[in-house]
Each structure stands twice: as structure tokens, then as C-alpha cells.
Amino acid sequence: MSEKVLLVDDEKDFLDIMSERMQARGMTVKTADSADKALAMLESESFDAIVMDFKMPGMDGIQALKNIKNQKPELQIILLTGYATVEKTVEAMKIGATDLLEKPADLEALAAKIKQAKTEKMLLVEKQNEDKIKDILQRIGG
């Protein structure tokens, strides 16, 4: 089954080409040109991963990351940045980013990260389900 990705960037050019190229690699891609739009889309749709630019007008990458993680903790988020400093990366990782890639990004590397993110998400969802089942069983047992 193909990966479903939400691509968030304020550069329309970038969005169009990336989505076309990612689709050419068998992924299902939706785009949003701002973090606010991405958040709105997340309410109605589910994705395997989000690929988001770190620096956008309006809500910046860190804020968007926090909001998305609050809304959907299991969602895997890959950030794209012009320059990854240790501090910036650590901050993003602490909030819950799956990975951080530097621009100009290599699409093959990004595709590999997305695949990995999907697996992580599935494991996470499975674990959440297991926990829920355990919780229910404990309640029934208790």
C-alpha cells in the first residue's frame, strides 16, 4: 500500500514539483501552502507522514510541529530546513519530529525517510492499540 503524505511549503513551485515527483514514486500526495491549512486538512484526513518546511511565513515550523503533535501524536513529521543546527534539530526532535533534512533535499533519501516514518507510525499505532486492549482487559479483569 502506498504512503500517504502531506506536503507543506509556502513555495508553490516546490509543492507542485515535489508532489509530482513523489506521486511518480507511487506515493499519494496532498499539498498545503501554509501550516494553518495543513492543520485544517489533518482534521478531516489521515496521513502516514507530513513533510514540512521549517521556515514559513505565519506559523513557523516549530509552532506548527507543536500544534500537529498536539492534534495527532502518532503522526510522523519530517522537517525540511535550509540549515540544520544541532540546537534546532534537538528542539525539533524533543517536540517529536521524526527527522530533519537539509535543503537541497535528495528525493530518494526523503522517500526512504517517509517509508521508515510509515513503519514507525504503524508500530506506534499498533502499540497504542495494544495498550488500549490491555487497558480494557484490565478494566474488565479489575
Binding site: 513555495e11 513551485d13 516546490f14 514539483i17 515535489m18 509530482e20 515527483r21 511518480a24 521556515k55 525540511l80 535550509g82 540549515y83 537539509e102 535543503k103 537541497p104 533535499a105 528525493l107
Partner: peptide, 21 residues
């Protein structure tokens, strides 16, 4: 300057990638 260059550079990267695709 480096920050600003990286964004158009990425567009060149992706567009060329698309040509190859």
C-alpha cells in the same frame, strides 16, 4: 545569504529531478 540561496537551489534541484523523472 546561504539560507536564502538554499530555497531557490532546492527548486532547481527538484525541477531538474522532475526532468530526469
Amino acid at each position: 545569504v546561504a539560507h536564502e540561496i538554499n530555497n531557490p537551489l532546492d527548486i532547481i534541484n527538484q525541477k531538474t529531478g522532475l526532468i530526469i523523472d
